[in-house]
Design a protein around this nucleic acid. Structure first.
Lengths: 263, 263
DNA sequence: AGTTGTATATATACGTCGTAAACGTACAGC
DNA sequence: GCTGTACGTTTACGACGTATATATACAACT
């Protein structure tokens, strides 16, 4: 086929004619990139939720056919992992922007590795609150993707935590246990913090906002009464408090704890 | 239409003829029920994972057209909530089967409410390990479904935890904070416990099983080294240890904790 | 210049999904 | 018998993920 006939449809601006093609759209070369795609995906999910993220929709967002995305993500699952990665990259930025651990400044009661773990936890907390719609992915993908296949930024985060624990002098077993406690606590805390409570957003009265009126009355008296308090957030203080408690316990050097709470 | 002609297609066994209809299939009345549907769904998910659960597939599993399910679940999301409910019902069975809290037997160091919280946590842990594929739903639906709309079994579970905390003498604020800590810890711990680690199941060597050979070497030395230890489980002991630590902290009566770990 | 190779985006198509709407069919009570 | 209602089926539609084949734009080489 001849070359100058270049597809009259799709509002092309030929050599100087009218039909208004988008600026710097000549050709469709190099419009996309993995970064642009992930940024757009994250924005879309932040704006409209995870269920709004489809290949076609994201393509439309970027003025591109859905299939074009497959050049930058092997599958939709890979795209989701990309989102997880993007969030972890933002986490790294936040950590870099923060005050750092300023070694030598450790107060009497808190060694550097401990305050740094708190800094990590808090930065994770804040990053998650900034992208609440993505949080489900953090747990979901963690259960689906084996360690070695996780995005590099995630692995770097693991490495950071692990390094701090080992620098604290913990042996392999204990640092692994503490690692799991740290990871689990932060994830669980954030999930609870972001759990859906509000049922009817435009209702002014707190009880009605929560939709307590259509909860079984007799069967759930305490929950009904506690709901409004439960709907409040624990904030970063709660996160830090729990983390402190867990670190105290899991990094302790004593051998076996002798509590058998069951029976 | 006459009645004895009853649909020759679909392998019917008429009044004594051949084509072999399933036993007690005369008519298709009352084959389904919400219980049957949820049981089958849970079984299917346990067997083949969440992604295998579609209305059509579940219908086929029950020898029914997909649309028939909509009589027992208003939507697929409602079906997922039903799964969450089913798991919580199993949790209640497990609790009922267990030894109960036997009041008056509280040891010197552990009041009844505390050991009962441990029992709840442990039963949750075991139920989750019995249905690992459903665990993602626990976090996911908690983020999607507002409190008042959650399945009754879930709300009953909340009520139980809350009751224990209030019976321990905690005021509204503190019991809410402890409730969140409890919920978050159990959920987070289970998620970490179930996280995907194994990359190549049929590999005998632990390192190769984890797929460590295709992780960036230089950048992640500690993680690489710690991975095999990390792949081990914390078990119920880890769950109990963390829970103890959190309960100690969150139920303490002192006013404000004065730790500012960040800087 | 023209040719060729490769990176990039499109076009088309297939099977599956959730589910709205209309329809049949079996039982319960009259 | 007749009639209403609970139950399951049929059909259809639009959206989804993605395999495959194709068109286009740029770079490099001749």
């Amino acid at each position: 086929m001849a070359k100058e006939q270049r597809k009259p449809r799709r509002k092309g601006e030929g050599a100087g004619a009218a039909p208004a093609r988008r600026a710097s759209d000549r050709g469709r070369y190099g419009r996309l990139s993995r970064e642009r795609m992930l940024a757009s995906a994250l924005e879309l999910v932040d704006r409209e939720g995870l269920s709004a993220l489809s290949m076609r929709r994201l393509g439309a967002e970027l003025d591109v056919e859905a299939m074009a995305l497959y050049r930058y993500a092997a599958s939709k699952d890979a795209l989701l992992d990309g989102l997880v990665e993007a969030v972890h990259l933002q986490l790294e930025e936040r950590l870099a922007a923060g005050p750092g651990s300023t070694p030598g400044t450790a107060s009497v009661e808190a060694p550097a590795w401990r305050t740094e773990l708190h800094r990590l936890a808090r930065a994770t907390y804040e990053t998650c609150l900034a992208h609440p719609q993505v949080v489900p992915l953090l747990s979901t993908r963690m259960l689906a993707v084996p360690l070695a296949r996780r995005p590099l930024a995630v692995l770097r985060h693991h490495e950071r935590v692990l390094t701090l624990l080992q620098d604290a002098g913990l042996d392999a077993t204990r640092s692994a246990a503490t690692f799991r406690a740290f990871t689990g606590w932060v994830l669980g805390y954030v999930s609870v913090e972001l759990q859906a409570m509000v049922d009817n957003p435009e209702e002014p009265d707190p009880s009605f906002r929560l939709g307590l009126h259509n909860m079984p009355h007799q069967e759930l008296p305490r929950l009904r009464e506690a709901a409004t308090t439960l709907a409040e957030r624990g904030g970063p203080e709660g996160l830090a408090a729990g983390l402190d408690a867990l670190l105290d316990r899991f990094t302790r050097v004593e051998a076996e704890r002798a509590h058998r709470p069951d029976s």
